[in-house]
Design a protein around this nucleic acid. Structure first.
Length: 621
DNA sequence: TGCGTGTGTCATTTG
DNA sequence: ACCAAATGACACACG
């Protein structure tokens, strides 16, 4: 048969009355009740926000943190102190309470950190002429991390903070700031709590050579004769701090220069005694990773559909210590276009459920009748029912209903429309087929019966017309649906011409192929539905992983802040033989692999840091 | 009239 | 090798 055959296709077209059904069904896909599409997406977003909010509650953040103005209020010291008083014991131990008076407390984590330097800090600065510093810079003397927590919504500042974290490896000590920081005046809570008064006899451990830990040597019996283990050239200056009792300082940092962590790099251009060499910090790797993670987070956001605002908000969320600022409209899960379409589909499903519920159930039952052809989608139907809630594909239901091809009556799912169905199909209702095959046209009375005959004629497919013209003695339904053996038996019962046999075989072939095509299309649709569901699942997973990532990064930063505070606390308590604090520009704390802490000169620390820095690079090569 | 959709059909592949 | 099913591609009807 040639294509010309199709040009004479008379029965292949849709009956005029058939379209309303198609339109009705297709309408489920196109029509979108005004409320549903958006509402579904927003509900999901709200869920996301709620999840994030709950996470934040765990971390001590309230929902009001999402409000920028509220976040500014958060800097109110009183409030912070109140929060901090509740949580300080988690990390600071004795003396922290007094310390907290001069600390800002992270609204979420409860971490305390120096909010500002003592009021007389400028006078101290002046007392150290060579290291004087513009007062305006003094707030930067602490780690950028700390300042970052004070203005969590200053995005640029946050970024710089992170960059500063990165640069902690290349930390250079600002002498003046260090002096200011660690030369606390007598009235300073830091000094009053962590160091002896200037008059207090230095609690000098002989074995410590030069270093002592004023006021808290019982807590930090850090010193032991480990100087010998250090290079002779610098041994005189080495002040090993070995905790006699297990200190809170963990050895997991390895032999690392801690000082680099806590003194901002090149805060200004002022003199730096030990300027130059980069120092690795114990968290350097982590910081790098965190930084890279954040960058990759941004990249991910940008690459995978986050718009810049969303990406920046995600970044902001990460940057913001205490604030989760994911706007509901920027939920990662709401970014998917496919999800949007799905949600709109679901809306139509819900809205059209009443009108199509019967169709759906009929569709399910009709699918179960497809066994003859082999493509049963019972399970698929169930899946679709489940998916309707999550994905929403009522329109596909309509399609499937329409595509219950194995049913002799294509419109069986909507019985009242059954007779309207356009009929290119070979699977006509038996009555129609019988009418087409059995009664001779002239047998019917005139009038209404003629009209009925015309109608039935129009209902007949092309091949049915041909079969009738060729006087095929059995129905097309039998021709198509009988098993091979029975079909052959049927053929053998009749004396058929070659033309008749050929037509019968064509009818059978086309009929089978038509059903196969219908099943194929149905399968294709199901595949698409499944893929869309998979995409949605993956998007949900992705959003969840992103949230987890943000949480991990946040907790990582909090841990770094705690380590930083501990470092400052320990270093600030150290006193030399004259009872004076050590200059952070000249000395640094360093973890040894065995858990001990050494006070070593900066120069030595720089050298070691440089050495350590080379190792990983060499490994990479 | 052009477009999108649904359908039937053919040719071919696949099992 | 044969057959049926599956599938891509095309044409057509319809809204």
């Amino acid at each position: 048969m040639t294509r010309l055959d199709r040009s004479s296709h008379s029965g292949g077209g849709h009956a005029k009355g058939s379209r309303p059904l198609n339109s009705l069904l297709a309408g489920h896909r196109l029509a979108q009740p005004p409320s549903a599409p958006g509402s579904r997406a927003s509900v999901q977003d709200i869920d996301l926000i709620d999840i994030l909010w709950r996470q934040d509650i765990d971390l001590g953040a309230g929902r009001e943190i999402f409000d920028y103005s509220h976040r500014q209020k958060e800097q109110d010291v009183d409030k912070d102190l109140q929060d901090g008083a509740e949580r300080e014991d988690t990390w600071s131990g004795e003396g922290a309470e007094a310390l907290a008076r001069n600390l800002l407390v992270d609204g979420e984590t409860g971490e305390s950190f120096p909010a500002q330097f003592p009021a007389d800090i400028s006078s101290i600065t002046e007392a150290v002429p060579s290291e004087s510093e513009p007062p305006g810079l003094q707030n930067n003397l602490l780690s950028p991390l700390l300042t970052g927590t004070e203005s969590p919504f200053d995005l640029e500042q946050q970024w710089q903070d992170l960059m500063s974290i990165m640069e902690m490896q290349a930390m250079e000590v600002n002498t003046s700031t260090s002096e200011i920081l660690y030369s606390a005046p007598p009235g300073d809570p830091l000094s009053t709590n962590y160091s002896l008064a200037p008059n207090t006899p230095i609690n000098q451990n002989v074995s410590l050579h030069q270093a002592s830990l004023g006021g808290c040597s019982q807590d930090f019996s850090l010193f032991s004769p480990e100087v010998e283990s250090l290079p002779a050239a610098s041994s005189s200056a080495l002040l090993p701090l070995v905790p006699s009792n297990s200190t809170s300082l963990n050895s997991t940092f390895g032999s690392t220069n801690l000082a680099g962590l806590f003194f901002p790099p090149q805060l200004n251009g002022t003199a730096n005694d030990t300027a130059g060499p980069e120092l690795p910090d114990p968290l350097g790797g982590l910081l790098d990773e965190a930084m890279l993670d954040e960058i990759s987070l941004m990249d991910l956001a940008i690459e995978e559909g986050f718009n810049p605002v969303q990406a920046s908000q995600l970044e902001e969320e990460f940057d913001s210590d205490s604030g989760l600022s994911l706007d509901s409209s920027h939920s990662p899960s709401s970014l998917s276009s496919s999800e949007g379409s799905s949600s709109s589909s679901s809306s139509s499903s819900s809205s059209s459920a009443s009108s199509s519920s019967s169709a759906s159930s009929s569709a399910s039952s009709s699918f179960s009748e497809e066994g003859a052809v082999g493509y049963s989608s019972d399970s698929e139907t169930l899946d679709l029912e489940e998916a309707e809630g999550a994905v929403g594909y009522q329109p596909e239901y309509s399609k499937l209903c329409r595509m219950s091809y194995q049913d002799p009556s294509p419109l069986s799912c909507l019985p009242y429309l059954e007779h309207v169905g356009h009929n290119h199909t070979y699977n006509m209702a038996p009555s129609a087929l019988d009418a087409a095959d059995l009664p001779p046209p002239g047998a019917l009375k005139k009038g209404g019966k003629e009209k009925q005959a015309d109608f039935l004629d129009k209902q007949m497919s092309r091949d049915e017309h041909r079969a009738r013209a060729m006087k095929i003695p059995f129905t097309n339904d039998k021709i198509i649906n009988l098993p091979v053996e029975e079909f052959n038996e049927l053929l053998s019962k009749y004396q058929l011409s070659e033309a008749q046999l050929s037509l019968i075989r064509d009818i059978r072939r086309r009929g089978k192929n038509k059903m196969a095509a219908q099943n194929c299309r149905k399968r294709k649709l199901d595949t698409i539905l499944n893929l869309e569901r998979d995409v949605e699942d993956l998007q949900r997973d992705k959003a969840r992983l992103l949230r987890e990532k943000v949480e991990f990064l946040r907790s990582l930063r909090q841990m770094k802040q705690k380590v930083q505070s501990l470092y400052q606390e320990v270093f600030g308590r150290l006193r030399d033989e004259n009872g004076r604090p050590y200059s952070p520009s000249q000395y640094a704390l360093q973890y040894a692999g065995d858990g001990s802490v050494l006070l070593i000169p900066r120069t030595l620390a720089d050298q070691q840091a440089r050495r350590q820095e080379r190792k990983p690079k060499d490994r990479r090569k």
